[in-house]
Amino acid sequence: MKQSIKKVLALTLALMSAGALYAQSNKQITVTGKVKFPDPTGKYKIYLGQYVGDGFAKAFKAMDSTALDANNTFKFTINTNKPDFYQVRVYYMDRIDFWADKDDLKINFRGIDTAKRIVKNPPYIRIEGSADNDVVNHTNFVNYRNYQSTILLYNQLYKAEQAKDSLWVASVKRTIDSLNSDVKARIRNIVEIYKDKPTVLYALNGLRGKADEPFVMSVLDNLIEKYPNLQQAKATKKEMAAAKAQTEKIANGKAAPDFAYPDLNGKKWGPKDFKGKYVIVDFWASWCGPCRQEIPHLKEVYKKYKDKGLEILAVSVDAQPEKWKKAMDEEKMAWPQINAQDSKPVMSSYLFSGIPYLVLLDKEGRIIEKNLRGESLDKKLKEIFGI
């Protein structure tokens, strides 16, 4: 009798395991949502996809697309045997990253109404239905509020610099520094709260500075120990190691990474073409407000130091050349202009993701300083030229 009971229990457990395995192999969730202001032309779609590639070479790859139904709603189904981050893009304007695992999600979008141009002030988008995505929601809200405040402050900085009011400039810069410290502290707090969840990887993207490295590494090690199969954590460690190695390669005093992109006539330019001169490499784009606000200042710098041996190389990261050309016509810059239509390689080699990004090189093509602008650029040039 006991032997029969054991056989029945063994068979039951085997069937339960098989059922669990079958269920696991068919694990799915749905992602639904509504778009308040749909595209009136009807030619744009809603996309589901992921980022593929490593580091700055990562690019969004669409896996599926759909149109809105009569109620302006959409729906995607995702196989979540291996939980991971995905992204929904609405008309390639609004977008949101989310963690897909066990819960169905609802994500509503505002849509196209405020899109006066292709790049607009990104709205805050909330993910509903999943406690796992709380860390994403909290992180996005912190970044959203920080972005709004940053826009206001840089507008003030531009006005202060135009007014040549040094006290006003200094005051705004102190506020900007305080804002940067504040957002980092808030992100760090989110990481502390959610450090045992795989989705904390999303918040860690905001803590990639040298000072943050020990803390970030401790969180990653904790995740890897807790979830040995969490490949995303291992990949993040690998990316950080690669970024650290590249940081050392572009330290001040090191040779600037070379590149070559075409000007309007198809002639390719790069740092090596300016040996014997000091050169400002200005990474910018037509759609970048702060970039274009810096141009009048660069014109003053160019006029002041051109005959002293300074040159400027403007590297547009516009993906659409026609917009780059239009901006050049409007700005009338007198220095060489090139277009890095595929900007990922050069952004990866110089390790920047935001623009404007100015790099000052010496006569031998070595890096003097990175991420200069406004007053900091003036100060450095005065050290070099003495005026």
Rank of each mutant, 00 (worst) to 15 (best):
K2H: 08
Q3N: 11
S4P: 02
K6Y: 15
V8N: 01
L11T: 12
M16E: 07
A18T: 14
L21C: 09
S25Y: 04
S25E: 09
K27I: 04
Q28M: 07
K36L: 15
D39G: 08
G42S: 07
K45N: 13
Y47F: 15
G49I: 02
V52M: 10
G55W: 09
A57Y: 14
A57F: 11
K58I: 10
K61P: 04
A62N: 09
M63C: 02
M63T: 07
D64S: 13
L68N: 08
N72M: 09
N72F: 09
K75I: 10
T77M: 11
D84R: 12
D84E: 12
V90H: 06
Y91I: 06
Y92L: 10
F98T: 09
G111F: 15
D113S: 11
A115R: 12
Y124G: 04
R126Q: 14
S130M: 05
D134H: 10
H138S: 08
N140T: 11
N143M: 14
R145Q: 14
Q148N: 14
Q148L: 15
K164H: 14
D165K: 13
S166W: 06
S166V: 13
V169I: 15
S171I: 03
R174L: 10
N180K: 15
D182H: 13
K184Q: 12
I187Q: 08
R188S: 08
E192I: 06
K197Y: 10
T199N: 04
L201C: 08
G206P: 13
G206E: 03
D212T: 08
S218R: 11
L223V: 12
L223A: 12
E225G: 11
L230Q: 11
K238V: 02
K244C: 01
K249G: 01
A251C: 05
K254R: 15
K254A: 09
A256T: 01
P257M: 00
D263P: 06
K267H: 12
W269C: 06
G270W: 02
P271H: 09
K275F: 04
V281G: 07
W284C: 05
W287C: 04
W287L: 07
G289V: 15
R292K: 07
R292D: 06
I295K: 04
P296A: 07
L298K: 02
L298G: 06
K303E: 14
Y305M: 05
L310Y: 10
A319T: 10
W324C: 03
D329C: 01
E330W: 01
M333F: 09
A334S: 15
W335G: 02
Q341C: 01
D342F: 13
V346P: 01
S348R: 06
S348I: 00
Y350Q: 00
F352G: 03
F352D: 01
G354E: 07
G354R: 14
I355V: 11
I355Q: 05
L361H: 09
K363I: 00
R366L: 01
R366S: 08
E369W: 00
K370Y: 06
L372Y: 08
K379I: 13
